[in-house]
Amino acid sequence: MGRKTEGVMNALLHARVLRRWTRAARKAGAAELQVLRVQRQQARELSARLNELIYLADGRLAMPRIGSKAFARPAGTLWSWRPQLWRGPLPQKGMTAVAARTTLGDEVTLFHDCKVSELTLRQLRNTREEDLAPFGLRLDVFRFDGSFLSLALDMPPEAVEGMTRRQILRVSAVLEIEKPLEIFARLNINHGPNTEQMVQELPRNRGEAIVEFDLAYCDLNEKRIEKAWLDLIFEGPEMNQITLRDVTVCRYPRAEL
């Protein structure tokens, strides 16, 4: 049976069942008690299954669609990106005692210099109404004997195509932090033998944190730009839980002065 034929049959069956219960409801006031008792039991069993379906469907349909690239962009945006970790499921959902230089998918790498790793990572499904990214990343830090902890995000080649000093690169992160923590975003742009770096601290307010890198303030050789990457640096992360619900990057023209 073809999919179209099956769809027509299901629609006809649904219409028939709906007509049956519509008639039963209209006649309930005058129906014999024995008949009404049977219909009430059948209706309760059907209602339980329908409520279960509605509950699960509401939950799934409220989640951001897997693979979604939807997020707010400034007017005139030339390029935008949400790393794959926040778009789709990873083969390995969680890790404990995470080693230095652990890769998460093809674009994200965790760096630290702990002698004994007491770090755990877990990719989670975003389910909040305000979430736009399908997935998030949760980092639990217990005892921390290292001097640095960071996530490196390798931007795709399209990130630097047409990049000039007359543009702004904006980074947005949706954060949940168990206790106050300093987080810095460092933009790295490789051009020829040199790497230009710009650092900004992410605002500490709960929710979306946005920083903008004005490329006019860096010594950038536009003709030799090769690649770019972003570091998210966590200062003093010991005994903390950090949840990155979303990370997005976009590039757009700066206003001419």
Rank of each mutant, 00 (worst) to 15 (best):
T5M: 08
V8N: 04
L12S: 07
H14N: 12
V17I: 14
R37N: 14
Q42T: 13
S47T: 13
L50I: 14
R60I: 14
A62W: 06
A62F: 02
R65F: 10
S68R: 07
G76I: 05
G76S: 08
L85F: 02
A97S: 12
A99T: 10
A100P: 10
R101H: 12
G105F: 00
G105M: 03
T109E: 07
F111G: 02
F111K: 04
H112A: 05
K115F: 10
L124A: 04
R125P: 00
T127C: 08
E129G: 02
E130G: 05
P134W: 02
F135I: 01
V141Q: 01
D154L: 09
D154C: 07
E158L: 08
V160L: 08
V160H: 07
E161W: 10
M163D: 00
R165D: 06
E178Y: 04
K179H: 10
F184G: 04
N190S: 14
G192L: 09
P193V: 11
E196Y: 06
Q197I: 04
V199W: 06
Q200A: 08
P203C: 03
E208R: 15
I210F: 03
D214G: 04
A216W: 13
L220K: 06
K227W: 06
L230E: 01
L230D: 01
D231W: 09
F234M: 04
F234L: 09
M239Q: 13
T243Q: 10
T243W: 09
L244M: 11
D246I: 02
V247N: 00
T248K: 02
V249H: 02
V249L: 12
P253N: 05
A255F: 04
